[in-house]
């Protein structure tokens, strides 16, 4: 019996009173309850003012880490299917904190930063988590949306493919210079994404979109440096008028 007593005590103490709940970790585990701001920057490596703004923007990204997502573009503004036309910008540099109403004067980076900062502090009505799965030339982006209040109206979810660490030294003439957040295309070829159904508070819904590296990202460099940005838009007249929330996931 003297051996039985410590055995019971040891067995009981073997269970730690602080535990991690990990028995059923789901495939998507990055739905954020924060409202994250989306900033798009339209520029070019050959644009002097754009490059001058770059340090301030990078600092802002770094300070806010995951809460700001930047997309830099140099696209065909005359192509109505292109994100640059869709976002209604007319010159570079230009910025937006997430809607298609682009600020396009040389000083508006500060306005965009200010708007993004204000957005970060507001409450989220809906959240999104995502996971990209690479298979050949196709990246399947699985998403789960979670409603923090009743969601009704016209909302879309879109996914953008961007690339980090892109070497731009050949263009800029500065050895080793790189750019992050380089826009490569939209999943399902839909800049404004696809409609989502009404949701009740506490409800979750799953969505899947596909980004094809072969046909859309014709100038991507490294699939493993791609990130995918899911954005939930409030829609009017087939355009996003407000970013409700967004999130980002890297290729794994």
């Amino acid at each position: 019996m003297k051996k039985l007593i410590p055995a019971i005590v040891v067995a009981a103490l073997a269970f730690n009173s602080c535990t991690k709940e990990n028995s059923e970790i789901p495939e998507i585990n990055n739905i954020s309850t924060e409202r994250k701001a989306l900033m798009l920057k339209f520029g070019s490596t050959t644009c002097g003012i754009c490059n001058a703004h770059e340090p301030a923007l990078r600092a802002f990204y770094n300070e806010n880490k995951y809460t700001v997502i930047g997309i830099s573009v140099l696209q065909d503004v005359t192509n109505t299917t292109d994100i640059s036309w869709q976002y209604n910008y007319s010159g570079i540099p230009a910025y937006t904190e997430g809607t298609y109403n682009v600020f396009d004067t040389t000083t508006t980076k500060d306005i965009a930063i200010s708007s993004a900062t204000a957005t970060i502090g507001t409450k989220a009505d809906i959240g999104v988590g995502l996971k990209p799965i690479l298979n050949g030339d196709n990246v399947t982006i699985k998403m789960t949306l979670a409603a923090f209040k009743d969601i009704s109206g016209t909302y879309n979810v879109a996914v953008y493919a961007i690339e980090d660490g892109v070497d731009v030294s050949a263009v800029s003439g500065n050895p080793g210079e790189t750019r992050d957040h380089v826009y490569r295309g939209a999943a399902n070829n839909l800049v404004w994404g696809m409609p989502i159904a009404n949701m009740a508070k506490g409800e979750k819904k799953d969505y899947t979109m596909v980004y094809n590296l072969g046909t859309q990202g014709t100038n991507y460099n490294d699939a493993m440096k791609m990130r995918y940005v899911a954005v939930i838009y409030k829609m009017e007249n087939n355009r996003g008028v407000e970013v409700m929330n967004c999130n980002v996931a890297a290729q794994q």
Partner: peptide
């Protein structure tokens, strides 16, 4: 369990 899609869950007594 219900919160695992939102992040890491710890339970501390």
């Amino acid at each position: 369990n219900d919160y695992l899609q939102f992040g890491e869950v710890t339970i501390e007594h």
